[in-house]
């Protein structure tokens, strides 16, 4: 797998700052698992946070709080070894496993929503707007141009498509800011499976999300 479409730097900084909405952050985490390039970039972004932290004037911390922490560490469980080095299984990134609770993309209980289009919605929390879920689109679809609105991230987990922006394959993330006039086409034999998170109200930019919008009117 060679990832060629990466996170926008603004998305990366917001993720490092911990201010991306939860569903978008989860898509970013899943991409990070698949993308050494963005992992390295995130380290630099975290270091910016570290530099700002080190520059803050200290705020007083009560001695009772320190005593409480010193008391609690005696019984705290030590993390000795990295917890989750196991490779993702069945094409499901670890970040996604935690909400999907399945080990394989083959086990997803898809719901057919239109010819060639299946969706599986992931649980949202109170107050979360937009779409959060998986899409499976059969090869061969082509979509008309659309406009765009709020944030949207689309991570390709399996299969591929290409458009004027290039080839989007496994591990690539569509994190576009600008509306692009293009006609995407699915590649290969197998369906394209994507993880998508948006913030409503939005008009989808990436092709898989637009397929979904057209057929299920989200």
């Amino acid at each position: 797998m060679s990832v060629s479409h990466h996170l926008d730097d603004a998305t990366l900084l917001s993720h490092a700052a911990g201010t991306l909405p939860r569903t978008l952050a989860l898509v970013v985490d899943a991409h990070l698992e698949m993308c050494p390039h963005c992992r390295a970039a995130l380290k630099a972004a975290n270091a910016i946070g570290g530099a700002l932290l080190s520059d803050l004037s200290p705020a007083p911390v009560s001695s009772s709080l320190k005593d409480a922490v010193m008391g609690r560490i005696g019984s705290a469980t030590i993390h000795r070894l990295p917890r989750a080095q196991a490779a993702r299984q069945g094409g499901v990134p670890l970040a996604l496993q935690r909400v999907l609770r399945l080990d394989s993309l083959d086990d997803i209980p898809w719901r057919k929503s239109a010819p060639g289009v299946h969706i599986h919605k992931l649980p949202k929390e109170a107050g979360e707007a937009g779409f959060f879920g998986l899409l499976k689109i059969a090869p061969g679809a082509a979509m008309p141009e659309h406009g765009h609105g709020g944030s949207e991230l689309t991570l390709i987990l399996q299969g591929a498509y290409h458009d004027e922006l290039g080839h989007f394959g496994e591990g690539d993330i569509a994190d576009h800011d600008e509306s692009v006039d293009h006609t995407p086409v699915a590649e290969g034999e197998q369906p394209c499976i994507c993880l998508v998170a948006t913030q409503a109200p939005t008009r989808f930019r990436s092709w898989p999300a637009r397929v979904m919008q057209k057929f299920i009117g989200i």
């Binding site: 911990g18 990070l32 992992r39 993390h79 990295p82 917890r83 080095q85 970040a95």
Partner: peptide, 16 residues
């Protein structure tokens, strides 16, 4: 997110 904790993955936890 106490109701349903889901902290971001800790990069150092799983990085090869």
């Amino acid at each position: 997110r106490r109701a349903k904790p889901l902290a971001p993955l800790d990069l150092m936890d799983w990085e090869p």
